[in-house]
Amino acid sequence: MAIVKNDSLIEQEWITVDAEGDLPSSDENIIVPLARFKEERDSLLGRNGGLGVELNPGDTPEDLAGDIDRLSIITVNFPAYTDGRGYSYGRVLRERMGFTGELRAVGDVLRDQILLMHRCGFDAYDLQVDGEVALDKVRAALKEMTVYYQPTGDGRATAQSLRERRRAALEQKAS
């Protein structure tokens, strides 16, 4: 039970609330499921504490289009690691909707998926293991592969862009 973000362990500062029921006091930072956010949008935005939204498989991240700058965090739930919908949500949120807050993977988050998640825009991982173990896993996972073929929004140089750079350098040398 540890959250890793930007190469360090971070505290859980958010309360994830259910689809229904009472909310904690207005000062608390809360994360609400997308459906509830859509229903209670105005009152939720009027609270004092921080606000985040949880996406579940089948949700439409585009529903957040008008409010993306008002959210500090979006969590994407992977109920089973085999359910890969969250990868698309990550890319849509980052690359299309321009979300700049924390994008946290929650649920069945395992070492072998972390690099993929990172490539799809996630910057925080809620793992089911304890502190240092979680940090070690994330660190190891992120450096396991160093060659990337696909351009995503993660800023990594693709093999293709490196090839082009090299070709250009060679041409310059030749001329």
Partner: peptide, 11 residues
Amino acid sequence: QWSTFHPEFTY
């Protein structure tokens, strides 16, 4: 190349 370890489409 595009499809090898595509991060979005592995699951």
